[in-house]
Measured scan of single mutants.
Amino acid sequence: ETFPLDVLVNTAAEDLPRGVDPSRKENFLSDEDFKAVFGMTRSAFANLPLWKQQNLKKEKGLF
């Protein structure tokens, strides 16, 4: 299941849709939104070091 970017960005855990893991908001973006937000594919993002993934998520309001 995916959700629009505005539902996930800068949203407190208690305000997220049911079933969304607040530590993994990026997994609930569509592939198109994911690429638009991070400028890379999911596989490229997954290959980044964890610290870099976290920094990007913070920068984009998805942490």
Rank of each mutant, 00 (worst) to 15 (best):
K52G: 05
E32F: 09
F28V: 04
K58Y: 10
N55R: 13
T41Y: 02
K35E: 15
F45Y: 04
E1G: 12
M40T: 01
R42D: 01
D33G: 03
A36N: 12
P4N: 06
T2A: 08
E59L: 12
A36M: 14
V9G: 05
Q54L: 13
N10R: 11
G19W: 11
V9A: 10
R24F: 14
K52L: 13
L5Y: 15
S23A: 14
S43R: 11
L16P: 05
F45P: 00
P22D: 06
L62A: 04
N27H: 12
K25M: 15
N10G: 11
L29D: 02
L62R: 03
L8R: 03
L56Y: 04
V7M: 14
N47K: 15
P22C: 08
P4R: 01
F63P: 07
K58F: 10
L8A: 05
N55H: 13
P17M: 05
P49V: 01
V7T: 10
L16S: 06
L56S: 01
K35S: 12
Q54M: 13
A13M: 12
P49I: 02
P49E: 07
N47V: 11
E1S: 14
D31M: 04
G61S: 02
F45E: 00
K57F: 06
A12D: 10
S43N: 11
L56A: 04
K60H: 12
L48R: 00
M40N: 00
V9I: 14
F3M: 06
F38R: 00
N27W: 11
A44G: 06
K25T: 11
A46W: 08
L62D: 06
W51V: 10
S23V: 10
D15T: 08
L56I: 11
L8P: 05
G61P: 02
V37M: 07
V37I: 12
V37A: 08
E32Y: 10
A13V: 14
D31L: 04
F34T: 00
F38T: 01
D21R: 03
L62W: 10
K60L: 11
L48D: 00
D6M: 08
T2V: 11
K57C: 09
F3Q: 06
A13T: 14
V37F: 06
N10L: 08
S43L: 13
S23I: 11
K35Q: 14
M40A: 00
A12R: 14
F45L: 01
L29V: 03
T11Q: 09
